[in-house]
Amino acid sequence: MNWELMWDSVPTLLRGVPVTLQLVGLALLFGAAVAFGVALLRLYGNRVTERLMAAYVFVFRGTPLLVQIFLIYYGMGQFEAVRSSFLWVYLREPFWCAILALTLNTGAYTSEILRGAILSVPQGQVEAARACGMSRSLLFRRIVMPVAIRQMLPAYGNEMILMVKASSLASTITLLEITGIARKLIAQTFAVFEIFIVAGSIYLLLNFLASRLIRYAEWRMTPYLRARG
């Protein structure tokens, strides 16, 4: 073990943390929006949207993320139509390609989590709300969503951790986030274990924080489960 080298690699690797956080944060944000739309279209849409969204989820859950990233980063640029469109400003940047791939990927997984959560809302509560004369949108906003979000939190926490790990694949399209920097350092110094321990610890810390965050959100959203007094 080369302690000095290990210590020196810490600040270098920490420089990758903002990139990783941006990738994860933006992908989760956009992914949540995608998931919301997809889940609604699958549950309340007509047969066509239902089939389409089911196909989207099937494809993105059934293929490796690496294929999705390569397809977007290398594959899109092949078409003249894409290259001449306004989207090219974004699609030629590896950062936005990674965001797009991660968003579509997490959107597919999260939509399934959300769909399951919405389906798990007790029918009696929906009937009670209807009996009170709530409109469809009010019922959805006040009854279904709060209960569903509470229900999906543990599974969503797992998805967050998966995204932190998945963001490492952005290094394959030249982005220098934590894993990308680690790979570069390993190639330069051959101190495989030292770099792995430092980079791995950073990821473990990030994942620990993510799981704490979800725990806190769960605690905040379930005041009725807390013992009073």
């Binding site: 932190v164 790990k165 894993t179 190639a187 980079a199 473990l204």
Partner: peptide
């Protein structure tokens, strides 16, 4: 289980790719 499930798969693969022989 904690380390392997909490660290990106790619990092584990690099560890074994560069350090597996050793």
């Amino acid at each position: 289980t904690t380390v392997v499930r909490g660290v990106p798969e790619l990092l584990v693969i690099y560890l074994l790719f560069f350090g597996g022989g050793g």
